[in-house]
């Protein structure tokens, strides 16, 4: 029906402010264009926010904060780094970052996937939550900083620590602090000091379910970034689960 579907729209973002740029993206999406290619992006915010019809958006340059905030269904590919607040309260869709990303990635994300090839900053995956068939997944190729998965309530967080220098910890401090749902898998070991009070450490590999869960998403990840799944999965993972779904149940007097 719609002849635009296969059409690619290129938008040069140079000298466009975010509102102008996003208007162009939304208009293209509303016309039914499925592939939108942005070039010379530098710092423009909210790309993918409020965009209908779930187009694929390819970004060359550095997209600004809140990339894909409240996003519903779009598929975003960033050629290099992303900034802060990627996938903020994201509902569904996919964001692929071929470089590294900043802080607060995937805050309160409820569905979809965020795949980062490099490292991520502080407070990644805070308050992620799953609901029914919505299951948020974040896979980080490199390392993460402090407060990873803080208040995590659902979904899946995987940190691979690829190309990690031995002095750099794979995750920072307070990992999973306040966690009360979801699963975190870290490729390698974590020290007790790196973990929040509310998480418990498990060994995942004996559990078939864990392996198939990791495999399901990690294979896609590896395919995207041309990585060898088998060699990555060989290393032992550490599995972090909340100690309780009621971490603060005992906080109050009667």
């Amino acid at each position: 029906m719609n002849r635009n579907i296969s059409k690619l729209q290129r938008i040069d973002a140079r000298d466009l402010n975010y509102r102008e740029l996003n208007r162009l993206i939304k208009d293209a999406a509303n016309e039914g264009i499925k592939n939108i290619h942005l070039t010379n992006v530098n710092g423009q915010r909210y790309i993918g926010t409020g965009v209908n019809n779930a187009p694929k958006i390819n970004i060359n340059g550095v997209p600004g904060n809140d990339l894909g905030a409240f996003m519903d269904g779009c598929s975003i590919n960033v050629s290099g780094n992303g900034e802060d607040g990627i996938g903020n309260t994201m509902n569904s869709g996919r964001i692929v970052i071929n470089g590294s990303a900043g802080d607060i990635l995937g805050y309160s994300m409820r569905g979809g996937e965020i795949f980062v090839k490099g490292n991520v900053g502080y407070r990644v995956g805070i308050h992620m939550k799953s609901y029914k068939n919505m299951y948020p997944v974040i896979i980080i190729g490199g390392c993460a900083r402090d407060f990873l998965g803080e208040y995590m309530a659902g979904g899946l967080l995987i940190v691979l620590g690829l190309n990690r220098k031995s002095k750099n910890p794979i995750v920072g401090s307070y990992c999973g602090t306040g966690m009360h749902g979801g699963k975190i898998f870290i490729r390698g070991n974590v020290e007790p000091w790196q973990l929040g009070k509310e998480v418990r450490v498990y060994e995942p590999n004996k559990n078939k379910d864990d392996f198939s869960l990791i495999e399901k998403y990690l294979r896609q990840y590896c395919e995207l970034f041309s990585l060898d799944f088998d060699s990555i999965i060989k290393t032992n993972f550490t599995k972090l689960l909340p100690g309780s779904s009621r971490p603060y149940g005992k906080l109050y007097a009667y």
């Binding site: 607060i104 308050h127 609901y131 803080e150 309530a153």
Partner: peptide, 20 residues
């Protein structure tokens, strides 16, 4: 749980700040 879109019976924790 349906209105909040979180699983039934789990704590609904609102952090002190918005982390963004």
């Amino acid at each position: 749980s349906e209105a909040r879109m979180i699983p039934e019976g789990t704590d609904a924790i609102s952090p002190a700040p918005h982390h963004d």
